[in-house]
Design a protein around this nucleic acid. Structure first.
Lengths: 253, 253
DNA sequence: CGTCTTATTGACCATCCTCAAGCGACGTGG
DNA sequence: CCACGTCGCTTGAGGATGGTCAATAAGACG
């Protein structure tokens, strides 16, 4: 449990079809037919360096793309230089909606590591084919991305630094596990501390101190771009990580 | 400018068709044909009291609804009783998506005042008719609601209490103005301070102090459920309220 | 080895929270 | 008609969380 099962830079490598398939199948079970269809798609990959803008805010992408490798995020700059990240884009996630109407992007998508993206248009074509699991998976994808935004709001609005950090780490673990990029409780975490700060609405210094505290608490091991959650249950409890509760009565005057 | 142009409880009353039409037309100009279609829809209204849950988290609404009168919000409770509100639902806004797939609600929708909602299914039927402005308006509605979530994240993550409050007030003014419920810089604000606190991720006490500060700064008048922005330009500048900027290079290792 | 970037730490300070009490408006029952 | 309770707003005092500034360590890389 304390041996890091990844070597930095030696992360698993999946091709575009495998990533897309895993992502979709993690939401809705696909028929063998549909799975084969996804694996047969001609997905053309393109590499982009760290820091490149995969999609500008307000831009309408010519076609939808899937992130195949590397990490990205959606973010916004404030006029005075403050930065806020809205969510992470992990392998298997879409950049832009798969189907028309193609809406202008509400935020810029930026590569946090070197990334590879594939044109997802062939996947859209597959939706017209037989089987209903694929459309359902697409709908679930949309739904999950909204849920992640709401989770982010909850973190920023009502959680302490420690809780926010724990919640984010668990979220990342779960999302990576869904596409087979986590190994038990260990997973790659190629983020700088200042990036985590911009995600969590904290300062770099405080992120650093929070991570130190987690190490002292023996709930987290973090070295060389690889994170290991040592006591996932405890961390999950502290993060209040669970499904949203139905809201009780709540009024105003 | 300092005379309150509303009397509390005497807010403008619009019927369901007028609200729906104004909301849609505020996003995309509708043809006379389409406008007439919207006004002719048979929209059945239903009243719900303060605090009632218009839509439970995880529930799939049997049909889509439009908020016709009153205010609501989407919110979540944390296991320990902390509360976070995600966004406001104002007259003309949808509760649930208009078109299939009907996804389970990502958060509970709760009435903040007595509300009236109308079954929006007839509106969906209208989409199949002639004219293309209506579908475009619906897409814009979706897009705007995502933008509001991102604005909320930015407020919570990177703005001070004063900035958050200013930003929220301006957002509300703009949204109400779009459906004709604001009068210049004056608009109804039927929210308790603890509700504003749960929206902005602050404590009630601090919301109170922030509002006091705004009054002292002569940028806000707030009495009897009516708000007046006295220096909208100044407030807007302080809130950093503007369209998202394209994000510059941003990396990680 | 020198340089650049990223992580870490200390010291000090600001923002915001919590607790607690007081106030004013309103509605209710004696 | 007035005492009383309730609800929402307001204010003070003290404290905790997290921010800023600045210096140092630790890697990564040519």
């Amino acid at each position: 449990m304390s041996v890091l099962p990844f070597r930095a830079g030696a992360a698993a490598v999946l091709d575009a079809n495998a990533v897309a398939l895993r992502r979709l199948a993690s939401l809705v079970p696909l028929s063998a037919e549909e799975a084969k269809g996804v694996l047969a798609l001609p997905l053309a990959c393109r590499a982009s360096p760290v820091g490149s803008e995969l999609c500008a805010a307000g831009a309408i992408a010519p076609w939808p793309r899937v992130l195949v490798q590397g990490w990205a995020c959606r973010m916004r700059m404030l006029p005075d230089g403050r930065r806020q990240m809205f969510d992470l884009v992990l392998p298997g996630d879409l950049i832009g909606s798969l189907l028309p109407p193609y809406r202008p992007a509400a935020a810029a998508s930026v590569a946090l590591t070197p990334v590879e993206t594939a044109n997802a248009a062939p996947l859209a074509a597959l939706l017209a084919g037989p089987g209903e699991a694929l459309p359902a998976a697409l709908a679930a994808l949309d739904r999950q991305s909204e849920r992640l935004l709401l989770d982010q709001i909850t973190r920023l609005g009502r959680q302490t630094a420690y809780e926010r950090t724990a919640h984010l780490l668990i979220e990342i673990k779960c999302r990576l596990a869904a596409v087979g990029l986590a190994c038990g409780n260990a997973f790659p975490l190629p983020l700088r501390q200042d990036t985590i700060a911009d995600l969590l609405g904290l300062s770099v210094v405080h992120v650093n101190r929070t991570l130190q505290q987690m190490r002292r608490d023996r709930v987290l091991e973090l070295r060389g771009g690889v994170a290991v959650l040592l006591q996932p249950g405890r961390l999950q409890a502290e993060a209040g990580f669970d499904t949203p509760q139905p809201g009780p009565s709540y009024g105003a005057a």
